[in-house]
Each structure stands twice: as structure tokens, then as C-alpha cells.
Design a protein around this nucleic acid. Structure first.
Length: 558
RNA sequence: UGGGGCGUGGCCAAGUGGUAAGGCACAGGGUUUUGAUCCCUGCAUUCCCAGGUUCGAAUCCUGGCGCCCCAGCCA
């Protein structure tokens, strides 16, 4: 394959910083999720970037939980997030941090700001504050409390911390510029009173710092050099710099922004993902149709394929919608070389080989990978009664149909050439019940000694040896590429056929030995993964990760 | 005449004054015991538009147009 990774703008910034000697201790990045939900493929882009840059330039990357809002956060998310990041293949070593661990130092920074006359305690209500802030086109107005003396601010702020005021009664604001064209600079609130216990800090605090104040200082405390975040924080950067410039911090981190990921046929906003789960549109956060890392994992995507995907979509500041085929390509590309091949019949059609001895059975050699002999071979049982795919038979077949049809000869993979002689149908419905065929004993293994060719090769299983299995076939969650874009309700765009469960699949006996999360290519069908939750040796469950490319199906659509 | 960003093929994306990389997708062809893989081939006379500078512009200048983000005591 090709491993073309381009030198994107972040790499250029880093390389320039290193060349100029601005990072004597090496570069340092961080992945800073708020533990208020599950990670999705959009986060994977940020994770790969932050950890990737650190590895690439011999630097370090921290995992930091941005947990400054006790109302939304929970320990279960910090655990799930760590599992997902680790699964993706990244290691923060001993650098697991929590913004909540900085509460005391953050408080001291706030005091320092007050002492410099650069922060004040405001008594405006939230509604009043909104009025005073002005609008996009009108400047804001100074709060009547803006010129409160330093000593009074100090006293009030300490008493806020001590719990002397009700939630929302007072707030601490940075004193910047109420007429700034950038709304973020109009005296942003940096501390609010919230008598909500924190999932880690408990009831120790009743005041909590805001994101803008916390993030830059946490970066500085951790000696982060490159703070990479998404584009919507672009106009927070002046604020980021303002805090760093006005406080005595141990380091001078810089923020850089990149465009977040949008993927076709899915949604990536937390609000919508929650709605999918809570509305019962999917079977949970790890539903294999979900774009969450746990969903992609359960579906069968590998960490490597996700990393490759992230590397190939590039990194810019452009608003982009990545074509769904990019993700499919990433996993096909990998599994094409790594997945052992097996035979499974999803929708069985009975085939009886009339001229095959009734009680005869034999074991036939099959390669585990046609291009990779090192993956070895296995033996597949063959007998008089077999099953093939319903789609592989057509009674009135067009010329280009290379599969089985009355009077036509095909190859059963690794077995024999067979010819269809008779079609048994249900008298009432006319449905095809079984095929009576004959085989050519000379073609054992799949080659004709007389050199004759067949156009089609079919997968099959032996009726007597096959095991029953469930296959879950997934398709795109949404029927339209950009469910977010239209004027219609995004939920009305859900693909009603995103999940199809097949309970009567027949798999070759070897497949019952699979372990949960093991991946295979079911020949001619696609890549499948043993479900990590529901797979049982006596009840095999396989998730279809992705189909094989199918130029035959494509012809049918034209 | 609020501020900040972004506009290169169907989707991504290189390119930063010297005559449009690459990937995905798509379309042909070859190999093939998976209609898969693999291998060739094709796919922007043109870079949002209009002017200008220059021997030469996707790249520089001017003026438009389009799209995204911001008015939480969320992150």
C-alpha cells in the first residue's frame, strides 16, 4: 500500500518550533476530554493527532480529564474513555491528569488575578449579565460591580469559596474589555458557585473554574507546548493567551486549532448520539452501528484501521465531510491481508449431489489466505448434501450470471465442479427448495484435468457438518449522507435497514472455535467479527464489519 | 462596515511565483479456485468569481461572492 502522510500545518508549526529551539524539553501535547460521554471517531482524530505528534517528534502526550463541571461528569466516563484510548493504541504512561486536581492551584491563580486588579466579583444575575454583554453587533456595558476594590474582591471571593453565598449569587469575572468585538473577551466568568458534589473532589468545593480559565493554566502546569483543539475555540485563543500573559505560569503553551471530523451517513454530536441511545434507535453506546469507539470496536474495526483512517483524512482548517468509503477502505485494506478466510452461508439453499455416494465424507484442503501461504491451511468436510448461498442460484439466469443455474457448471471452492440438473420447487408457492446436481470426481480440489474452465466459484458448507450461527448485517445508520444538513428532522433520515439479523446461517465447523472479537473474511461475503458480548461457542454470533467490494452487485444497480 | 476562520476534481488533500502530487470514489483493461485481492489505464487546459501586478499567478495585490464558528455562571 502507500503510506503517504502529508506534512500538515501542525507538523510544520512543530518542526519550526523545534528548529528554532523553542521546545528544548521536547514537544508536549495532551488529549483533554471532558468525562461526560463516550468517545467517538471524531475524538479518534484528536487522539491520533495529539499522541501521534508526540510519538513522531519524541515528545510526550498527557491524558487529561477536563472535569470542571460537576453537573455533567461521572467516573464511569473516565473509565470508559481510558479503555477506548488504550484500545486505540495509545499510552499516556504515568501522565494521567485531572483538571480537578488543580482546583487549589487554580484558586490561587484567581486570587493572583484579583490582586492585580484583573478580576472582580460580580453580583449580576445570569440574565443581567447576558443583557450587559451586548450582542454580536453592539458593545457590552460595564457591570456596576466592575470597579469593586481589590480587598473587597479578595474577601468576597474567599467567602464564595467558603460557601457563604447561594449558587449563582456571585461570580468571579476577568476584567478585560466589555466592548471587545470578540465576545469571549467581554469580562468572561471564570468562577461560578455551584453546590454540586464533584465526582472526584467530592464536596470540597462549591466554586468551580470555567473552561477558558482552567484549560490554558492546566496546559501550563503540565508544560504542554502545543495545545491542539478544534476550530470552535479559535476565538477563545486571545483569552487563552490573556490568562497566560497575566499570570505567572511555569510554561508558555500555545493553542492551535484544526477542523473537527464530519463523517457521511452518521452523526457525531454528543446530543444526537445520546438521543439515539436514549430513544432506543440503537441498542446502546456500543451498538455496532454507532460511530463511538466502543461501537466501532464491537462492529469489528481494528485500532490500526482507525489510525490509518485518521492519518489519511488529513488535517486542515477546512470544514469537511469525509466520504464513508474512506472508513470502509481503511478496514478492508487491513483485513484483506490479515483476516483468515472461512466459508459461511448466510441464506442457505440445499444442494444434493446425486452421483456422490450416500455415506461418503471427505476432508478437503483449503488455504486460510490465498495470497499468504504462511497462514496455513485447514480441512473442510464435504458430503452429499451441501448448502450454497441463495443468491448463487438463478433459474432464469442472464448470460453474465457466472453462478449456478439449470444446466450450468460451477466450481465449489476447494471442492469439485458441479452441474445443476434439476430444480425442486414447492408445489404451492413455486419457491426453490433444493437443487439436484452432479459432480465431476476428477475435479477434486477445484481443477479439471481436462483443462476446462468454469466462470464461477461458489462458497458452500456441508449439511452434515455445518453449524448454525447468527449473523448481524449492518448498513449505514442513516439513509442520507448529511443527516445534519437538511431542513427535515435528522431522525427521519435513519436507515430502516441498518440492521438485519440472520438466524439460520451455516458456518464451517472450524468457525465454532472462534474467540470473541476474532475477525474473518467469509469468502465472497465480507469481513465478520465474532461479537465480543454475545458470542458463545454454542451460539456463534458474527457482526458483519463491511462487505467485500462487489462489482456484480454494482452491475445490478445499473 | 461585529469578530474570528475557511474556499484546489464527486469526497479528502499536496502545492506558498515557474506552468495542478497522492488517496478515496468512479470508469475501462489484465491476472485470478473469492465477480475479492493484485496489476495497469483513464479521470482539474485549471485552483470560488472579477479585475490587477508579472515573461510567467492556485500561489502576490484589489474588490466581490459563498460557507462555518461565537451573544453558557457548558466544554
Amino acid at each position: 500500500m502507500n503510506n503517504s502522510t502529508t506534512t500538515h500545518f501542525i507538523r510544520k508549526i512543530i518542526e519550526d518550533d523545534i528548529a528554532q529551539g523553542r521546545c528544548p524539553a521536547g514537544i508536549h501535547t495532551r488529549f483533554p476530554p471532558e468525562p461526560n460521554g463516550y468517545l467517538h471517531i471524531g475524538h479518534a482524530k484528536a487522539i491520533c493527532l495529539n499522541f501521534g505528534m508526540a510519538t513522531e517528534y519524541q515528545g510526550k502526550c498527557n491524558l487529561r480529564f477536563d472535569d470542571t463541571n460537576p453537573e455533567k461528569e461521572d467516573l464511569k466516563y473516565v473509565e470508559a474513555i481510558q479503555e477506548d484510548v488504550r484500545w486505540l493504541g495509545f499510552d499516556w504512561e504515568d501522565r494521567l491528569f485531572f483538571a480537578s486536581d488543580y482546583f487549589t492551584r487554580l484558586f490561587e491563580f484567581a486570587v493572583a488575578l484579583i490582586e492585580q486588579g484583573k478580576a472582580y466579583v460580580d453580583a449580576l444575575s445570569a440574565e443581567q449579565m447576558r443583557e450587559y454583554r451586548g450582542t454580536l453587533t453592539e458593545p457590552g456595558v460595564d457591570s456596576p460591580y466592575r470597579e469593586r476594590p481589590v480587598a473587597e474582591n479578595l474577601d468576597l471571593f474567599r467567602r464564595m469559596k467558603a460557601g457563604e453565598f447561594a449558587d449563582g449569587e456571585l461570580s468571579l469575572r476577568a476584567k478585560i474589555d466589555m466592548r471587545a468585538p470578540n465576545l469571549n473577551l467581554r469580562d468572561p466568568v471564570i468562577y461560578r458557585i455551584r453546590r454540586t458534589p464533584h465526582y472526584r473532589a467530592g464536596a470540597a468545593w462549591c466554586i468551580y473554574p470555567m473552561y477558558d480559565f482552567t484549560h490554558c493554566l492546566s496546559d501550563a502546569l503540565e508544560h504542554v507546548t502545543h495545545s491542539l483543539c478544534s476550530l470552535e475555540f479559535e476565538d477563545h485563543r486571545p483569552l487563552y493567551d490573556w490568562f497566560i500573559d497575566n499570570l505567572d505560569t511555569p510554561a508558555r503553551p500555545r493553542q492551535y486549532e484544526f477542523a473537527r471530523l464530519n463523517l457521511e451517513y452518521t452523526v457525531l454530536s454528543k446530543r444526537k448520539l445520546v438521543e439515539l441511545v436514549e430513544g432506543g434507535y440503537v441498542r446502546g453506546w456500543d451498538d455496532p452501528r454507532m460511530p463511538t469507539l466502543s461501537g466501532l470496536r464491537r462492529r469489528g474495526f481494528t485500532p490500526h484501521s482507525l489510525r490509518t483512517f485518521c492519518a489519511r483524512i488529513g488535517l486542515t482548517k477546512n470544514d469537511t465531510w469525509i466520504d464513508a468509503s474512506m472508513l470502509e477502505h481503511a478496514i478492508r485494506d487491513e483485513l484483506g491481508v490479515t483476516a483468515p478466510r472461512r466459508m459461511a452461508v448466510l441464506r442457505p439453499l440445499k444442494v444434493v449431489i446425486d452421483n456422490y455416494p450416500d455415506d461418503q465424507e471427505e476432508l478437503l484442503d483449503a488455504a486460510n489466505h490465498p495470497q499468504d501461504p504462511s497462514m496455513g491451511t485447514r480441512q473442510i468436510p464435504f458430503g452429499k448434501v451441501l448448502y450454497i448461498e441463495q443468491d448463487d442460484f438463478m433459474e432464469d439466469a442472464p448470460r453474465k450470471f457466472f453462478r449456478l443455474a439449470p444446466g450450468r457448471e460451477v466450481r465449489l471452492r476447494y471442492a469439485y465442479f458441479i452441474t445443476c440438473n434439476e430444480v425442486i420447487k414447492d408445489a404451492a408457492s413455486g419457491a426453490v427448495l433444493e437443487l439436484r446436481c452432479s459432480y465431476d470426481p476428477a475435479t477434486r480440489g477445484g481443477n479439471a484435468p481436462d483443462g476446462r474452465k468454469v466462470k464461477g466459484t461458489l462458497h458452500w458448507v456441508s449439511a452434515r457438518h455445518a453449524q448454525l450461527a447468527q449473523a448481524r448485517l449492518y448498513d449505514r445508520l442513516f439513509a442520507v449522507a448529511n443527516p445534519d444538513q437538511g431542513k427535515q428532522d435528522w431522525k427521519s433520515c435513519l436507515n430502516p435497514a441498518s440492521l438485519e439479523i440472520l438466524d439460520d446461517c451455516l458456518i464451517e465447523p472450524d468457525l465454532t472455535q472462534a474467540a470473541p472479537e476474532q475477525r474473518f473474511q467469509f469468502e465472497r461475503l465480507g469481513y465478520f467479527c465474532a461479537d465480543r458480548q454475545d458470542w458463545q461457542p454454542d451460539h456463534p454470533v458474527f457482526n458483519r464489519i463491511v462487505t467485500l467490494r462487489d462489482s456484480w452487485a454494482k452491475m445490478g444497480k445499473r
